[in-house]
Amino acid sequence: MSAGQSNSTRRPDGAALVIAVILAAISIIIFWQTSQMRVPPIQQRVGPTVFPYIVASGLGLLALGTLVSALRNGFPARSKDDYAPIAWIVGGLVAQILLLSTAGFSVATGVLFALTAKGFGRGPLWQTIPIGIVFSFIVWFIFARGLQLSLPQGPVERFIVTGSF
């Protein structure tokens, strides 16, 4: 994606073209998947495939519209976005997903907390990760112990609550 905006010329908007292609692809996927469906011979005047076909057609038309708009530079000007913070935060979410089952809620979410703060320019991680873990543990304690919400527990939670791993 080219974030730089020198769109005063009549060059088509590259990112918008990509969006048009993605919309077309989704439309084709829905068409294809729906055509593979087995329609039961039940009393159904409007079967389970009608609505997907309508949505797929709509997306197809919108892909065309987006294409036209891209060629005419019809998209609003975009701010110049910085991708490093996004990488930190997405990294935090991925780390949380991967760590949850083994490390438990507090550690996994503590890492998410610290990486998000890092994305907003607050560090260093060796300070923010412990802060995040303590914060997440308090939250875990309130919701999992006090309110019986089922949240994954790991060694940290087991140690603090029961005194053994």
Partner: peptide, 10 residues
Amino acid sequence: YAGILTFATL
């Protein structure tokens, strides 16, 4: 925002 993500995932 770190807090928002904590509660959103919770």
